[in-house]
Write a protein that binds this DNA or RNA. Structure first.
Lengths: 338, 338
DNA sequence: TTGTAAGCGTTATCAC
DNA sequence: GTGATAACGCTTACAA
């Protein structure tokens, strides 16, 4: 593999000159530069990023730490979408992405800091970890620049990007109320997710706004899983048949809820309205198509990468980005007929 | 950041000893080793993979070059699934993955070899490129170890993994024939995909096996896209209403085909049977659920990583892996009633 | 069992 | 404008 040494030898200059010529420094004769460039091309030279990283003490690489980088993540395409967003922005800005593997047994022993330091990534984007994940403490304690997805923490070296979860659910409640619904229950995720807290706040805010009394037992947790959501919804609906609408904290859970309702003999949306959250691909393919709060997951990725790179290059001192959500009305919601 | 130098200083030994102690060499006193290990821990030492890579001339990193690493890849979760498979196997074997960005304008200028050499990846897994992609020639010409997904090329340094496409379609045809279908048409992908060739072979083989005469005009190309498939299917079915079954080269195209059929007043599966290919998540969520040939895309990823690492470590001289496919019977196929 | 020293391919600091 | 030379953090002959 050709090195600047080889180029230096064939051109008859020092390696210093080659380095400077190739890196576009001004203090080098244009003729020598051209000769060097030509030889570099002839010899199929590629700069060795590893060597450069070593001396520059930066790798132009960011780590992507994803908790749900498993097969199951394929159902909602969220993880993938964020990844493509990160990839897009990084590509434009000459950063490479390395995937951190936290799922496999072997790597599980390594701490977050070890993972980062070993690969000498310049920064990290973290997605899908829970509030009680041990990594989270490490992230805050360490000085490694980091952007969290959906976890609102701001530190010197850490920021976050999330969507306006409160407002999202609020829009859903607004819409349901406008359809004449008053008995609106919520299928939330779990207590270890910040987004669940926020979405719950949105639910409360919505009820309050329309002066609908809150009922604690009308909020159930579906663990962000289709099956779990089905189960709790079935119970909820059995115990209280007066419920006419369901806001769910994810589309997958909405599917579970719908399934439960159908099993109980409900017709959708005639007997009960359901709105999801995420707007995953599935939601426009199922029958009936799902009314949902759309998150631009690709943009989450883009903004996360953007924020991180700004952090790295100290261009700005923003520490967070809040993206808007949008209500997508489809077929699982209808006027209340009770 | 702590280095072996720091450890050497505090323990009072040379850096050589530290290096050897930490890397588990036998020729080092157990007492010194323990002291060194302790100090390393105390000082929060992490080995610098960059420095190591430079001297070892290997990065323990493999590049993932994906053509469809874009938002659109979210519909079929294939790209993502393969990625998780690769990630799983690499994690177990201490390899990291770096994502090669080929979509963004900036990187597009770089050749395949440049991409690989610059990052000094040990090997590459390539997915989603077409037969006429300029990268392909480079891959063959270069000496960089590479495993291709769904492109059957074997060279000294390149191998591939794919599924048994011929047999997959054959199973579909077998099944349709067993349901009494004789007028079976095919919605294929496009000529630039090896899998399309194979699936076409499977279609031919299936017809031949059951002594059904081939009709060239009953094979149409849907470009692996839902909309395109819908269009060509509409035309096909309009021109020849005697067709009672459709084998499609992807689930997404099957959805397009179904849509076209419905528009023409067909009921599914009463009036026409449709079978897809891939078994993407969507196919079990749509109504009616899709009969399809299932590919274990996660396993494709695992096997690709496995094959590449074997190649890298010269453990074996296999150059390819063929995975079986499976027919998943769901609701879009029924007995022929014509 | 341990240490010395060379070298991996760069960039950066000087001096010329 | 250009060239020695040191440095980045590590591994690895070779020597002791």
């Amino acid at each position: 593999m050709t090195t600047i040494k080889d180029i230096a030898k064939t051109v008859g200059v020092s390696i210093t000159t080659v380095s400077r010529a190739l890196n576009g420094y001004s203090d080098v004769n244009e003729k020598t530069r051209n000769k060097i460039k030509q030889v570099a091309k002839d010899l199929h030279y590629s700069p060795n990023a590893v060597a450069r990283s070593l001396v520059m003490n930066q790798t132009k690489t960011i780590g992507l730490l994803v908790s749900g980088l498993t097969r199951s993540g394929a159902k909602d395409n969220i993880v993938f979408d964020v990844l493509t967003g990160v990839n897009d922005y990084c590509g434009e800005n000459d950063y490479d992405i390395v995937l951190f593997n936290t799922t496999t047994s072997k790597q599980k022993e390594k701490t977050y800091a070890q993972l980062c330091r070993e690969r000498r990534v310049d920064g990290v984007i973290v997605q899908g970890i829970k509030k009680n994940d041990p990594y989270l403490i490490e992230i805050i304690e360490n000085q490694i620049p980091c952007v969290l997805v959906d976890i609102p923490i701001e530190e010197d070296a850490v920021g976050y990007v999330t969507t306006d979860n409160i407002n999202g659910i609020l829009k859903a409640v607004d819409y349901l109320v406008s359809l004449g619904h008053q008995n609106i229950a919520m299928v939330n995720g779990h207590d270890q997710a910040f987004v669940s807290q926020e979405r719950l706040k949105g639910y409360h805010a919505g009820l309050k706004k329309h002066q609908i009394p809150m009922r604690e037992d009308w909020v159930v947790n579906g663990e962000f899983e289709e099956e779990a959501a089905e189960k709790v919804t079935q119970q909820l609906l059995t115990e209280d048949p007066s419920i006419t609408a369901l806001v769910c904290a994810s589309d997958l859970m909405a599917f579970g809820a719908i399934h439960a309702a159908k099993k109980l003999g409900y017709e959708i949306p005639k007997d009960i309205s359901v709105v999801g959250f995420d707007n995953i691909v599935l939601s426009s393919y199922v029958t009936p198509t799902l009314t949902t709060i759309s998150q631009d997951t690709h943009k989450i990725g883009v903004e996360a990468a953007k924020l991180l790179i700004e952090l790295l290059e100290k261009k700005d001192n923003r520490r967070s980005t809040l993206l808007p959500n949008e209500l997508i009305v489809r077929e699982t919601t209808a006027a209340n007929r009770h």
